[in-house]
Write a protein that binds this DNA or RNA. Structure first.
Length: 195
DNA sequence: TGTGCGATGTCCT
DNA sequence: GGACATCGCACAT
């Protein structure tokens, strides 16, 4: 996906990312998964957003720089992957919350330091924002990368049959914005938790 | 320099 | 469904 894809309303980007293939070549090999869960963060008025009130924090510069960049930041010591959206220089973003593994399952398991015994164990690879970042070899050092270049990028893959929505996860503090339906999911067993 | 906590994950029952 | 390990950062002191 080129830059123009990301330079749109974060809600549109969050919905349209469902079914896309997230590819990472950060470890040299190609590893990928289909996006099945996203969340939109709306910027200066959204108390859950890292750009709330135009406030900045360490490493949040991509939010204020341009659309179509990675924004990787740590929560509970673990990196989470966002993509920055429009308008450029306004702090809006989409959090990637879960993937269905597609390519490089062996590599993912190694990076996650877990063993895959059966089909069910595949869900442990990328079903959660910190899990997928780890499985794709994405860390804080990949903050601010241009998604239209690499080594992290999106490709066309599938069209979701239907899109489910729910409130966002873990933003109870966000006041009026905490209950908005800004989480988007495919009907997939690989979501981080049921809506 | 200290303290509290989170856009989490894992293990246990 | 619940406890807790965890660690970088924001904010207070």
């Amino acid at each position: 996906m080129g830059k123009e894809f990301f330079c749109r309303d974060p809600v549109l980007v969050a919905v349209d990312l469902l079914g896309k293939l997230l590819v990472s070549e950060t470890t040299g090999a190609r590893v990928s998964g289909m996006v099945v869960e996203t969340e939109a963060y709306l910027g200066v008025n959204d108390r859950a957003s890292h750009g709330y009130g135009w406030k900045r924090r360490k490493g949040s510069w991509p939010l204020f720089e341009d659309c179509g960049l990675t924004y990787v930041y740590p929560v509970h010591g673990k990196p989470l992957l966002n993509v920055t959206t429009a308008p450029p220089k306004e702090p809006t973003a989409v959090l990637i919350r879960a993937l269905e593994p597609v390519e490089g399952v062996e590599i993912m398991a190694k990076l996650r330091r877990i063993e895959i015994r059966g089909e069910r164990d595949l869900r442990k690879l990328c079903s959660g924002p910190a899990r997928l970042a780890q499985a794709l070899g994405i860390g804080l050092e990949h903050n601010g990368l241009d998604l239209s270049k690499g080594p992290i990028y999106f490709e066309e893959y599938r069209k979701p049959e239907r899109v489910l929505t729910s409130r966002r996860v873990g933003v109870e503090y966000a006041g009026a914005f905490k209950d908005l339906p800004l989480r988007f999911l495919m009907d997939s067993p690989f979501v981080s938790r049921k809506p």
